[in-house]
Design a protein around this nucleic acid. Structure first.
Length: 258
DNA sequence: ATGTCCCTACGCTAGGGA
C-alpha cells in the first residue's frame, strides 16, 4: 500500500499535473495541501474519471486540504476539535485496509511567517492543539498516518544551509520542539526510518533558482503510528515534479507499507 | 539585495501570503 503527500500550491493550476502524477504513481491515497479553492470548486469529477474518491476541506484563496483515495473514505473530519479556526488545514478520513481501518490525515500546518510574529504564535498554538487531538485520535485509530506540509525542518540535515537558516522560522527551536512532541506520541518520521541520499529536500523557494541550486528544506513529512511504522518498507521524495513546467514549489513524498 | 508564484479586488496593478 502506498500513501503520498503533495502541497500543490493551487489545485486549480496544478490539477493536470496531479492527474498525470496519479496515473504514473497509482498510490492508494494522496494527501493534498494548499488547494486554494472553495468547497464547491473542488474537481471531484476529474478524480472520479481516473478511479479515485476524495474527501476535502476547501477555502477560498488560501489553505485547503484533501485526501484522494482508491477506496471511498468514511468518517471525514475537518479542523482540530476545540480550536476555533476558519482556516482549513485538516481533513481526516478512514480508509478500509486488509489489517483493519486506516486513519489518514492530510495536514497543512501554519507557516508562521517570522519568529515572534502573530502568525508564529498562531503556529505554535495550532501545533499544541494538533498534539492534543492526535493523542486522542491515536487511541481511536491505532493504524494512523498523518501526511502533509508541516512547515518545519526537523533537523539541520533537513536544511540546505543550516548556518544561514539558524533560528529562523521553519527551523527555530520552539518549532522543532513542537515537531518532536508529535514523535513523542509514538509517531515515526517515515523518511528517517531509512538510509536516504544526503541533501534530501521537499520544498525549494521559487526565487533565486533555489531548485537548480538544491537550496531546499525538508518540511513535508509522513508520520506513522506505532502500529504502522514497522510495516513501512520505503519512503521517497519525488523530486522530478519540481522540474515540471509551472511546478509546485513542493515535491511529493511517498511511503510504501506492506 | 525582498529576486517568484498564486490569489483577490471599487481589476489591467498592487498587496498579502508563502
Amino acid at each position: 500500500m502506498k500513501l503520498a503527500t503533495w502541497n500543490v500550491n493551487s489545485l486549480k493550476v496544478r490539477l493536470p499535473q496531479v492527474l498525470d502524477w496519479l496515473r504514473a504513481h497509482p498510490v492508494d491515497a494522496l494527501c493534498l495541501q494548499e488547494l486554494k479553492l472553495a468547497d464547491d470548486q473542488f474537481p471531484l469529477q476529474a478524480f472520479a474519471d481516473i478511479g479515485y474518491h476524495a474527501q476535502w476541506a476547501g477555502q477560498k484563496t488560501y489553505n485547503g486540504v484533501a485526501v484522494i483515495s482508491r477506496e471511498p473514505g468514511a468518517d471525514p473530519q475537518r479542523n482540530l476539535p476545540g480550536f476555533e479556526d476558519h482556516q482549513q488545514r485538516i481533513i481526516a478520513t478512514t480508509l478500509p485496509g486488509p489489517s483493519g481501518p486506516l486513519r489518514v490525515i492530510s495536514a497543512y500546518c501554519p507557516n508562521g511567517q517570522a519568529v515572534g510574529s502573530d502568525k508564529y504564535a498562531y503556529k505554535l498554538k495550532w501545533y499544541a492543539a494538533l498534539h492534543t487531538w492526535l493523542a486522542d485520535e491515536l487511541q481511536r485509530y491505532p493504524r494512523l498516518a498523518i501526511l502533509g506540509d508541516y512547515n518545519i525542518a526537523p533537523a539541520d540535515e533537513d536544511v540546505h544551509d543550516p548556518a544561514k537558516w539558524a533560528g529562523q522560522v521553519l527551523v527555530s527551536e520552539p518549532e522543532r520542539e513542537a515537531f518532536e512532541a508529535l514523535t513523542a506520541l509514538g509517531l515515526s518520521d517515515a523518511f528517517r526510518q531509512f538510509e536516504q541520499p544526503p541533501k534530501s529536500y521537499t520544498w525549494w523557494d521559487y526565487r533565486q533558482f533555489s531548485f537548480r541550486r538544491n537550496a531546499g528544506l525538508r518540511i513535508d513529512h509522513v508520520l506513522l503510528s506505532p502500529a504502522l511504522s514497522p510495516h513501512c518498507v520505503a519512503c521517497e521524495i519525488d523530486k522530478q515534479t519540481r522540474g515540471n513546467e509551472q511546478p509546485s514549489d513542493h515535491a511529493p513524498v511517498i511511503a510504501t507499507l506492506e
